[in-house]
Amino acid sequence: MTGYLLLFVASFLAATIVPFSSEAILYGLLKQGEPSWNLIIVATCGNTLGAAVNWVLGRYLLHYKDRRWFYFSEDQLTRMQMRFRKYGVWSLLFSWLPLGGDILTCVAGVMRVPFMVFLPLVAIGKGLRYIVVFYLSLIPLT
């Protein structure tokens, strides 16, 4: 049970702006013989929930764009929004990417992508990543 909780928390943190990796924990638990589909579901749920937090943050991010401490410039926000409009909501299937995936989920909130569109696309992308980790765990290391 502790391994599942650790995997959930690691997967959650890995999807937020906190730099963290959940794949190594999933891989280790798979190698210990834990049931693979249970682990994939736990990791996918944690990672998707973390992405949902990014969506919420993005949804309210623009309320603070005039503050001195605001991280993004107006130009950066405009470029992110233009890219998202260019590639559309289907780009959320790539939210699993290590570089840019977390920002993509935040931009989806900024762009007011409906949550019921956001959630399944992100869950599919995140789930596919963990399925790939599962298949990689089947390859012998020798």
Rank of each mutant, 00 (worst) to 15 (best):
A14S: 12
G88S: 10
G28K: 12
V18A: 08
D75Y: 14
G28S: 15
T105P: 07
W69I: 07
R83W: 13
N38E: 12
L141V: 15
G50E: 02
C45E: 03
A51M: 04
A52L: 15
F115K: 08
M80E: 07
R67Q: 11
L99M: 12
T78N: 13
Y130C: 05
R67H: 07
M111A: 09
S22T: 04
L93W: 06
M111Q: 03
D102N: 09
I131M: 10
I139S: 07
A43D: 02
V53K: 08
V89S: 14
I124A: 14
G3S: 06
C45T: 15
L6I: 15
I40P: 03
P114W: 07
L13P: 09
F70N: 06
V113F: 02
L13V: 10
E23V: 13
G58N: 04
P114C: 14
Q76K: 15
K65L: 12
R83H: 13
L49K: 09
W69V: 10
I40E: 00
A10E: 05
P98W: 00
A24I: 12
L39M: 14
R79L: 13
L61H: 09
F72R: 14
E74W: 12
W55I: 10
L138E: 01
L97S: 04
L104W: 03
A52W: 14
A51E: 01
S21D: 03
A43V: 10
V113L: 08
G125D: 02
G33I: 06
F94E: 00
R68T: 14
G58E: 01
Y135S: 05
I103W: 02
F20C: 13
L30P: 02
Y71C: 15
V53Y: 06
V132E: 00
F134H: 03
L39E: 04
T142H: 13
L138H: 02
W96S: 01
P98T: 05
S22E: 01
N38V: 13
V9E: 03
R83T: 08
S21V: 10
C106V: 09
L30E: 00
G125N: 00
D66N: 12
H63M: 15
V132C: 04
A24M: 11
V132T: 02
G109T: 05
V117S: 15
Q32A: 14
L61P: 10
K31F: 08
L49R: 04
R79W: 09
Q32R: 11
N47M: 12
Y135K: 07
I131L: 14
G100Q: 03
F134S: 01
M80T: 06
S21L: 12
Y71A: 15
L29S: 05
V56G: 11
K86R: 15
S137Q: 05
S21F: 07
E23T: 13
T78K: 15
G33L: 08
I103H: 00
Y60S: 06
W37L: 10
A123I: 05
A108H: 03
F72H: 06
F12T: 07
L62V: 07
F134P: 00
P19G: 05
Y60K: 10
I131R: 03
T48C: 11
V9N: 09
F84W: 01
N54A: 09
R112K: 14
T2L: 15
I124R: 11
I131D: 01
